[in-house]
């Protein structure tokens, strides 16, 4: 129903994920926006910078902190046609992570390219 209100407008949406997956609810609730937003047929990209890169870390286990382990949802995003995931190289490196530590296929870009991605986007959600 809501989709019909758009009148065929397609904008470049960018979800910027900056925070660690646990400790606050921002990352979890950001993912809820992405999933709902996927139904709107917009041009969607996700960016992971700063501690946000930890959201994609493999083998997360939240059993002992009693919060939901939503990390599996990132690998399901493809089914929602959310396929453009960008990770900032500098953020990964400064945290001692490599692409092999991540649970999904991403494109790794440097901070200059990240800046361009943000500049070129039309609707930016910053979580």
């Amino acid at each position: 129903m809501e989709e019909e209100l758009e009148g065929g407008v397609v904008k470049k949406f960018l979800y910027v994920n900056r925070r660690a997956p646990h400790g606050t609810i921002y990352a979890h609730e950001a993912l809820e926006v992405v999933l709902i937003g996927a139904a709107f047929d917009q041009d969607v990209s996700l960016a992971f910078i700063d501690d946000g890169v930890f959201q994609l870390k493999k083998e997360q286990d939240t059993a002992e902190i009693y919060t939901k382990n939503f990390s599996k949802i990132y690998s399901a995003l493809e089914m929602y046609d959310v396929e453009k995931l960008y990770v900032e190289k500098e953020s990964l490196e400064s945290r001692g992570l490599t692409e092999d530590d991540l649970s999904v296929d991403v494109k790794i870009i440097n901070s200059k390219e990240m800046k361009k991605l943000i500049t070129d986007s039309e609707v930016i959600f910053n979580f």
Binding site: E2, E6, V9, K11, E32, G37, A39
Partner: peptide, 12 residues
């Protein structure tokens, strides 16, 4: 209401 209202605000 739902999160669709937020996405709609972004589009509109």
């Amino acid at each position: 209401s739902g999160l669709g209202q937020l996405i709609e605000a972004g589009v509109q």
